[in-house]
Each structure stands twice: as C-alpha cells, then as structure tokens.
C-alpha cells in the first residue's frame, strides 16, 4: 500500500461522504425543530436535475459563474419543494411520514420528467477553487483538490452545530422541537420557525443533489442519488441529533462505502452487492423503527418529532 493509493482512497471517502453530510446537516435542523421530513431523497433529486439543467442550458452564457448559479438554483428549487411539504404538514396538519414519502416519490418522478431530455448529457465539473499547482499536487490534493461544495459541507455542519448550541435563535429552534405547546404559549411562532427549518433542510438537500450531477458524475442519470437521502436520514438518527457526531458518522459511512468500492474493484466483496442496493430501504425501516420506539431513542430525540402542531387560536 503506497501513499498514492492512500490519497486516492481518502479523496474517494470525501467524495462519497459530502452529499450525505450536506443532506443530513439540513435534516438535522428540520428534525431539531420537531418535523421529520422523509422527502430528503426526492428533494436531492430535484436539486440534482435543477443544478444540472441550469448549468447545461445557461453555462456558456454565465462562464465561470455557471456552477455557482446552478448550485444556488438547485438549493432554491429543493427549498421550494420542501415548502410544499411544509404547507401540507404544518398548515394542513397532514401525517409527516406519509407526506415525506410522497415528497420522495414526487421528487423521483419530477426529476425523471424534467431530466428525460438530458440523460447522458454532461456539464463541466464544479471543480476545485484552488490553483492547479496546489489542487493538482499529488499529495496536497487531499486537502485542496475538492469542489467548493466539500468545504461548504464541512463549514455548514460546524456552523449548524454552533447555531443550535450557542445562539439564541438555535435555542428557540430546539425549544420548538422539544415542546411546541410551551413554545407557543411563551410567544414563539412555532409554524414560522418550522417553515424556516424545513426550507433550510430543503436547500441543503438540493445542494447535496447538485453534488451528484455537477461534481461526482457531471452528467444526468435518473435516480442518480441512489438512496443516499435515506442514509442521510438514518445518520441524523444515529448521531443522536448532534452535529459533532453527525460529522463523524458521515465519514464513518463514507469510509465503509469506500472500502466496499475498493473491495469490489479487487474482485472481493465482504458484503453481497444486493445488500448495498437494499441499504437505503433497510435504513428507512431502521429510521422509522428507531423513531417510533421512543424508549430506545430515549431523551435524545426532539420530544415533538413528527407530531403535528395545530395552534388553538
């Protein structure tokens, strides 16, 4: 095992981890506000196709700014789709689990429809912002060879951790997730805070989706997020709703998946590939089971997670 191989592996780990980390960071904020949005996968796909289509169509006119505009549009589109979910579960008080699943199905369908004409097309990769001599260095590329979205993901999870635990706004957000009735009676607007949290979660999922279509494989393929949204959801639960553990957990997942990739490439697999294909669905079942079994998740889960809140006046 030589240095080049290790660096290759590390770069792969970062690439695999980033979209999961982005989506999970957004979902963490959503769940901390007391809402569970199972539509992460769908929002990621909406983000993926939007980012791709914008870059593909307007890229030549926008020049250097094209990928940035693409990512922002991806975030906006996913955030808008999340507000649809928000309207259903917050204003109309529908079941969050069912509505979230519907959002995923909607996202898969919509992205396939819009993406029908783009299958197999490519865009230029949203590449590293660092100069070539640094990003292209065989060793230093382990730190500087990534897309800006990688650095954004790391900063975002740290900022979210700081926001939740150190700021007053974060305290209020957690309060809303912990006891919506109390927060309402103290005078906080539970629904407004939850709408905002859902929008943030949507935007982050959109960026995560764009990472697939603009960085990993800068081309469009149907359902290219391959169930990573479900893994992000599981990660939020397994992290015990804490940003620090979320970061560590995301990389743990990333290392696991990279190991599998390498094992498969060398003709040896420690888990059958069907297992990896089934992983997202297994994760979905585990997430729901853990959240339903409050005794297991215990005091870590936001106490109002998944419960509709209807203010009485």
């Amino acid at each position: 095992m030589n240095l080049a191989f290790i660096i290759d592996a590390l770069v792969t780990v970062v690439g695999v981890t980033t979209p999961i980390l982005l989506a999970a960071t957004g979902e963490l904020v959503v769940e901390k506000s007391g809402v569970i949005n199972l539509g992460v996968e769908g929002m990621m796909l909406i983000g993926a196709i939007t980012g791709f289509a914008i870059t593909f169509n307007y890229g030549p006119d926008l020049g250097d700014w094209a990928p940035w505009v693409g990512v922002v549009c991806a975030a906006l589109a996913a955030a808008i789709s999340s507000q649809l979910f928000g309207f259903l579960v917050l204003t109309l008080g529908s079941n969050q689990v069912a509505t979230g699943l519907a959002l995923t199905i909607f996202g898969i369908g919509l992205s396939s429809l819009i993406g029908a004409g783009y299958v197999g097309m490519t865009v230029p990769e949203f590449a590293t912002p660092f100069p070539d001599w640094l990003a292209g260095d065989p060793v230093w590329r382990v730190l500087f060879g990534y897309s800006p979205l990688v650095y954004f993901a790391l900063i975002a999870v740290l900022v979210v951790g700081w926001f939740l635990n150190r700021t007053r706004a974060g305290l209020v957000l957690r309060a809303v997730g912990e006891n919506d009735i109390s927060a309402h009676s103290i005078g906080y607007s539970v629904l407004a805070i939850r709408y905002a949290a859902i929008a943030f979660g949507g935007a982050m999922a959109g960026v995560a989706g764009a990472y697939f279509s603009m960085v990993i494989t800068p081309m469009w393929a149907e359902q290219m997020t391959a169930g990573r949204g479900w893994i992000a959801l599981a990660l939020v639960v397994f992290s015990g709703w804490r940003a620090g553990r979320l970061l560590v957990g995301a990389y743990f997942f990333g290392i696991l998946m990279t190991l599998e990739l390498y094992a498969k490439a060398s003709g040896f697999s420690f888990l059958p590939s069907q297992f990896w294909a089934a992983m997202p669905y297994i994760m979905a079942v585990v997430v729901l089971a853990v959240i339903s079994a409050r005794g297991v998740a215990g005091s870590e889960a936001p106490a109002c997670l998944g419960r509709p809140f209807m203010p009485s006046n």
Partner: peptide, 28 residues
C-alpha cells in the same frame, strides 16, 4: 403582555424537559 409587566405561571408548565434551567429561563 410581558412588556407591560404581566407575567404568567401556567398550570401546565411551559418548560422544555431536555434543556437546562438557565436555557428555560432564557427562552422566557
């Protein structure tokens, strides 16, 4: 109401169980 100087202690406490006493105070 609070700006006017009206305080209220609810029958069902409006407290957040998973948070500390001080955090609960700050929220109010």
């Amino acid at each position: 109401a609070r700006r006017l100087g009206i305080g209220m202690v609810f029958q069902h406490f409006s407290l957040f169980e998973a948070m500390t006493v001080l955090e609960n105070i700050a929220l109010g």
